[in-house]
Design a protein around this nucleic acid. Structure first.
Lengths: 121, 121
DNA sequence: CAAAACCATGGAGTTGAGTCAACGGTTTTC
DNA sequence: GAAAACCGTTGACTCAACTCCATGGTTTTG
């Protein structure tokens, strides 16, 4: 599909998609018509984009994501310690979720307190 | 306590603390000695700072936090709908945690796959 | 008592993650 | 067959959240 369709279906802007592509998070091919320079994005890009949103919600930076997507499935070419990298990310995400849940709890308490307060004193 | 001690005990830089204070997230008083302009931070600032970290892990912006801390406990002065604001934040944080947990799960699977792979094919 | 360590203020600079504008070309649609 | 809608490329711009630097004072410490 072309970038406009991917934008519509993913809910992201064309600029954001191009930005992600420059960062190596999604990929495209040259497209069939030889007359133009339009690129073709595969259907799976939608899945990838959803995973990117998950990762960002977990606090991952785009640089980390690119590292994960590039280095990790690339059969571990050089002396890159994928296990250590993954272990570190996992610990980070766990800590972040714990903190977020603690915050959610206090939000809920604030909400309950507000609901219990009569409108005028 | 003075800003240096707060920095040491919170693990944040003095600059960050001053930045948070400008944004209205923490407060200080003029301090007792009249000869200098050093400010005095209360013990509770440490708790507040920890809550700020929780909130940030949950994806809250500093502007939202300032809104929460200012508007919400300020007895709802004008026509600000605290309940709607809180409900919106709660929904956002819930969604974020769900996404983060999904990502954590795929990280764990990647980790398991790596562990199961013998070093040389 | 002098050097080292600390403090406040102001303003500039940085980084990550996009976003916008302008250009010239290509398809689609009325 | 034009106008409208789309595309790629480049480069500048924005915004949030810090971070750094310079200046000029104040405490603490050896």
């Amino acid at each position: 599909m072309r970038i406009g369709e991917l934008a519509r279906r993913s809910g992201l802007s064309r600029d954001t998609l191009r930005f992600y592509e420059r960062q190596g998070l999604i990929a495209s091919r040259p497209g069939t018509e030889a007359t133009n320079s339009y690129r073709d994005y595969p259907e799976e890009a939608l899945i990838t984009l959803d995973q990117i949103a998950d990762a960002q919600a977990a606090g991952m930076s785009i640089a980390d994501l690119a590292m994960l997507m590039g280095q990790l499935q690339a059969a571990d070419p050089d002396g890159f310690d994928g296990e250590a990298f993954l272990d570190a990310r996992i610990a980070e995400v766990e800590a972040r979720i714990t903190r977020a849940e603690r915050f959610l709890e206090s939000l809920r308490q604030a909400r309950a307190a507000l609901a219990a307060t009569p409108v005028l004193r």
